[in-house]
Amino acid sequence: MTMPRTPKPSRLAGMNGRAALIAATIGVAAAALPLVLSNYQVGLATEVLIFGILAMSIDILAGFAGRTSLGHGAIFGVSTYVVVYATAHAGVPPAAAFAAGVLAATLVAAIFGLLAVRTSGVYFLLLTLALGMIVWGICLRWTQVTGGENGMRGDVRPALLLTNTAFYWAVLAGAAVVTFAMWRFVRSPFGLTLRGIRDSESRMRSLGYNVPLHLFIGFTVSAFFAGVAGAMYAMFNNFVSPSTVALAQSVEGVLMMIAGGVGTLFGAFVGAAAIIALENVVSAYTERWQMVLGITFILIMIFAPEGIIGKLRAILTRKVR
């Protein structure tokens, strides 16, 4: 891609004019969606936004720090569990429950992070997978608190956002803020350091950077965003069960991230939309969604590891030549 880039003098928090315009256009278009979609489709769009945030949070680590986490579904789910438990069993108001959920996810992730930053590559993947599975095992077995296999139900959503459309707009606003924050994060000097660590850990270390500390903070920040997505999901679903923290959740998040393109950040929404659309189409014909998910995963790994957008871009540039 060789596009002439003319830096505009009018910069809004580091965003150039054109990018701001595109972002605003997408934002307006997304906000107008409920006007043309059915109630059910608005629900799906909400789901796309929530899982897009989860996929982006995974991308912060995978795309910018070179560490693919298979534990983010569990971190997401911890937040969901805490929000549902706090509102349904402890009578906490929704806003406070939301904060508690995000906090809990961040704390759990901080503990995970202390261990995970010592590893890289496949070991990182294994460790986050094992840690996530422990969360799943506890949610499944600790019946008194989590409701075990049956899960927990609770009216989590605040009265103001009861309709699907109102909730969609709230999630959209939240997603916009969170997306902007993540975008700033990966472009900050801190984010650049993470990229440096991804490319050469030893070089960054010899330059005097505290690599484990950077990774730890990166992991915790990423988990914070996964926690936000998890808390939103609690309000979206009003229900939580062990399948919310199961490996499949992490895997779907990673798949969405990869489908959208590793390191593209915003691609996460494209990936989320693609996977959720696929899930809905498939579910209309068969109950074998897991199998389709597995096959999709295998096919993407073999044919398009750079993601749907990356693949399209590669095909297009080949045609232009």
């Binding site: 897991q290 597995g294 999709t296 790994m301």
Partner: peptide, 16 residues
Amino acid sequence: LRQVLLTLGFAFVLND
């Protein structure tokens, strides 16, 4: 990484 994720996809297929 692609190998690991591929085996994961395979696990899902087998399990289902």
